[in-house]
Design a binder for these strands. Structure first.
Lengths: 223, 223
DNA sequence: AGAAATTAACTGGTCACTCAGTCAGTATTT
DNA sequence: AAATACTGACTGAGTGACCAGTTAATTTCT
């Protein structure tokens, strides 16, 4: 269900290229799930924000759970294609690549997926954070399905450019790197609070200049 | 509300020292909130698991929100007293202390609060993770109230033992350190999945031997 | 080409159920 | 007896899901 809406693909996101209701529902779901969490979000609110009848959501997605997965699937495929492309480009070099661009390739597509939608305050990034940290069945399965494969690619890349890493340590390195990245994606505003405004977790580019050296140095400590 | 139950404090947690219903409710809330999240948890389930009538929860805590805060408050005070004690002990030395024990002091009390209850699978740690990462009003206020003060102490300690750190970078260092710690506290089982069983996020002590060098090296990269 | 038939997209209302919270009344303590 | 602790039945406000029926778009038949 949902693949029949492959119509009018072409160049979307162009100005206000009229979007299908199907996609409008997914966009709305992204915003509402991000603000209220899975249980806190209501089908009614998602429908209202998308400007459709509530029944239409059930027509397209059957259940709330399927809707949630469809929303995660759409965005994570986009992100992980970007990640894979960047990583492949780096590894295709002649000499051994640096660790730094690899770590950057891990985060930049997520950031860009956040801002492209503008005005949503990085809604999907927030969903990512809570999904990744959840120990619940449903969310773990989504992580496994959509994020474990690309994770393995980055873990292998870590081992390739830092030969001192055991496989176990490369896995820890990946987990820790993601943990640090959460700080940026959660957008809690806490850095600003703790620093009297010196730090701003809304500025992803500035954060990356701190995060990348932090993680790379941390990884090298595990070699 | 709740402080009138300071009765029979003494040595609790001893075998099955009969616990007050008040505390039984908080314990139950910890487990249920950890598994289902704030919205997903129901007062009915918390009451059943605690073996009391649902009305009793409202008698003691009035609302779900107050119950949640009471549960966070109890455990976080215990954790942060442990953290402060360890940190003060370290800073009281004559010569300049190392960064390593400070970072360890950040995490050990949380871990121990998790295991002491046994069998709950680190329920409170999971709540901590989702609370810290949430951008919602309610959870941000709790973080601010119960965790920002101790965070400032650790940020100052970072600057004291690593004089090259600016205040802004010390704040980032703290945020990143917490981010890495999430990996350990969330207990998602993902490390085991990604490593075919080589890594185990259930073994907090083993994780600490990886986390502490990772974070310390990362922090020093910011100097 | 144009009418007829079929499918897809969509609506508004409704259902059975669950939720947090209330309350009158009962047991237990002091 | 007076206060505190506690119960269990209850309520009104939502909840996700469902469905009969309407409109728009395609396909099929003549």
């Amino acid at each position: 269900m949902g693949q029949k809406n492959a119509k009018t693909v072409g160049v979307e996101s162009l100005s206000s290229a009229k979007e299908s209701r199907f996609d409008a529902i997914l966009d709305s779901a992204e915003t509402v799930f991000a603000r209220s969490g899975y249980e806190g979000a209501t089908m009614r609110e998602i429908a209202e924000r998308a400007g459709v009848a509530q029944g239409l959501i059930h027509y397209h997605f059957k259940t709330k759970e399927v809707l949630f997965e469809a929303m995660v699937s759409r965005r994570s495929q986009q992100i992980n294609e970007g990640r894979a492309a960047l990583l492949d480009g780096i590894l295709k070099q002649d000499q051994t690549p640096d660790l730094e661009p690899i770590v950057e390739a891990l985060f930049r597509p997520t950031i860009e997926a956040g801002i492209s939608q503008a005005s949503d305050g990085g809604a999907f990034a927030k969903i990512l954070v809570s999904t990744a940290n959840s120990a619940s069945e449903r969310e773990q399965l989504l992580t496994q399905k959509y994020y474990d494969p690309i994770a393995q690619k980055f873990i292998s890349a870590f081992m390739q450019v830092e030969p001192g890493l055991t496989r176990a340590n490369a896995v820890w390195a990946y987990m820790f790197a993601i943990g640090v990245g959460m700080t940026m994606m959660a957008k809690t505003g806490r850095p600003a609070r703790l620093s009297d405004g010196l730090c701003d977790d809304g500025d992803a580019d500035e954060m990356l200049t701190k995060i990348v050296p932090f993680i790379c140095s941390g990884i090298r400590a595990l070699t």
